[in-house]
Design a binder for these strands. Structure first.
Lengths: 304, 304
DNA sequence: ATATCGCGTCAAGTAATTGGACGCGATATC
DNA sequence: GATATCGCGTCCAATTACTTGACGCGATAT
């Protein structure tokens, strides 16, 4: 199968993958499904099906009554692989209108409800300019939606990385106004106007570069059974989860899971996990921040 | 271009899309990139590039010095469309190891950090059986990881929908043990053994079917500026956001955003939005639950 | 100066795909 | 219970997509 996979043309491979996909998700497919999805003739579709049958004969059987190929109980995906999470994500993307149903291979989107509050989506042009700036070490002028939302402020930033947390996209950047590194909410950037080479070394962003191990344990106020379940869900070893994390991002992770709330304020169910080394994280973050500010000031001094 | 798009073969269209993609994300691409990604000859790749140039001549220019095609400033995506969020999601998927880098079109994954605590991923076979059960109205026996994580419990459920919230997947199901509808965490289902036709009508799951409008406003304890910014971020109209939501899912949405925490317990920054009609939601949910339980009991009485 | 690399292109050959035609079996229609 | 319909499979010649091989061109590296 591996050899077969290598010598098959890219297009044919995709079509076999499609067969695999539909068998997995719908349990059935038609010759015409294949023909319509890829814009090929029925003859070619028949040939493709025959080829799939040669590779994985036990996976499907034609049901004359239903006029469709159906998945057998022995079915094992031969092409789409073991990580099906990506397709689940497609469903989420369709529900959020990030992706069109036609751009997926789903015939019927499974009855999946996505529980989220939709936010404004990112402007492609902004994203494009921002990515360029990151890649080519540029300093850019951006129009940043002020807190009031009405007045538009111009900022000069030199972004060097992007981060994603809880549905929000952040831009890690040096700020000319403050001469330090901070996070900008990508969806609040409306326009990128000018760009020029940046003179700031992103290696000075110690809050970004330095990582710390977050030591996470189930909330001890929960019953032992519940704690064990949570340990299993997060695949904890020895009762704790050690998650390396950039210092500047640690707060987002903490916010996401209510790790930054003092114990006792929330019901334990709302705070299923807690952070053991919070103090250490706080101190490390503050120290790194200080280091960056001083290094940037020194660099500016040398330059001017 | 539309006509061109229709008459182009599926494979060619994908390759033009690839050119568009690379121009967007990397700002550049090679003939050999195209050839290697799709397993075609360099000649064919040249032909494809020529075709793309015919369709969108202003989008790219060959840079002899760099030996690469480069994006021009006038670049406007001609194939990949306006919703680029789907590709951002791919990056998240790669970072979370749900997807392989090779299965995307990214040459270099942009320096994106994904802030999340990875959870155990879903077993494809379980997902497959569960989807079948939903689609064909089956009752299935599942092995559900008990709270202790060690003892395995068998449950008989008839699932009828799937929900996704904050990285977790839930299965909305009727439960034989309790004769009511409840949620099962998909990642805690280890195995699906037997299946048979279900006799329970999912239309009786009123907590699922009935929707309620969640009325969400910025936390009034925040400064007016901050409130305005949050209103903008969530695209609120008249200062509030009305989000229709299935009753059974309303709690997940509330949990995600700390809407279910009494005011004053958390710092306002950790509770940027609040729910105005919490009492109404609670009552509606309880009423629907009661209705379901009674309807199910009646149905059982008629049956037995 | 010379080698190397990526590009473009011409020409001939091969593989993929189409269009047309036919038969087969299961369901729906009257 | 005859008849139409639909989706499938398959044979054929014709067409299109793609490959293999060969050559020249310009920019960079040695």
């Amino acid at each position: 199968m591996q050899q077969d996979g290598d010598r098959l043309r890219w297009g044919v491979l995709r079509r076999l993958e499609f067969i695999d996909f539909r068998l997995f998700w719908d349990g059935r497919f038609n010759r015409s499904d294949l023909a319509e999805t890829f814009g090929i003739s029925t003859q070619q579709a028949s040939a493709d099906i025959a080829q799939y049958e040669k590779i994985a004969p036990a996976n499907l059987a034609y049901d004359r009554a239903d006029k469709a190929y159906k998945r057998t109980v022995q079915f094992v995906p031969a092409f789409i692989g073991k990580t099906i999470e990506r397709y689940l994500l497609q469903i989420v993307a369709v529900e959020n209108r990030w992706m069109r149903h036609e751009d997926t291979w789903f015939e019927a989107i499974p009855p999946v409800e996505v529980v989220t509050l939709g936010r404004r989506s990112t402007d492609p042009t902004v994203l494009l300019r921002v990515l360029d700036a990151v890649r080519n070490r540029l300093e850019i002028d951006v129009e940043y939606a002020s807190l009031t939302g009405s007045i538009r402020q111009s900022r000069t930033i030199a972004p060097h990385a992007i981060a994603h947390s809880a549905g929000r996209w952040y831009l890690r950047s040096w700020s000319r106004e403050h001469n330090d590194f901070r996070d900008y909410n990508l969806s609040r950037i409306n326009e990128v106007s000018e760009w020029r080479r940046s003179t700031v070394d992103p290696a000075l962003d110690f809050e970004w570069i330095h990582k710390i191990n977050l030591v996470i344990v189930p909330n001890p106020e929960l019953s032992p059974e519940r704690q064990a379940a949570i340990a299993a869900e997060y695949a904890m070893e020895n009762g704790n989860l050690v998650r390396p994390c950039r210092l500047s991002l640690s707060f987002y992770l903490m916010t996401q899971h209510n790790l930054d709330v003092e114990p006792g304020k929330l019901k334990p169910e709302k705070q299923q996990i807690v952070l053991q080394n919070m103090e250490e994280v706080f101190q490390a973050k503050a120290a790194a921040r200080q280091m960056s500010i001083e290094a940037l000031a020194r660099a500016k001094g040398n330059q001017g």
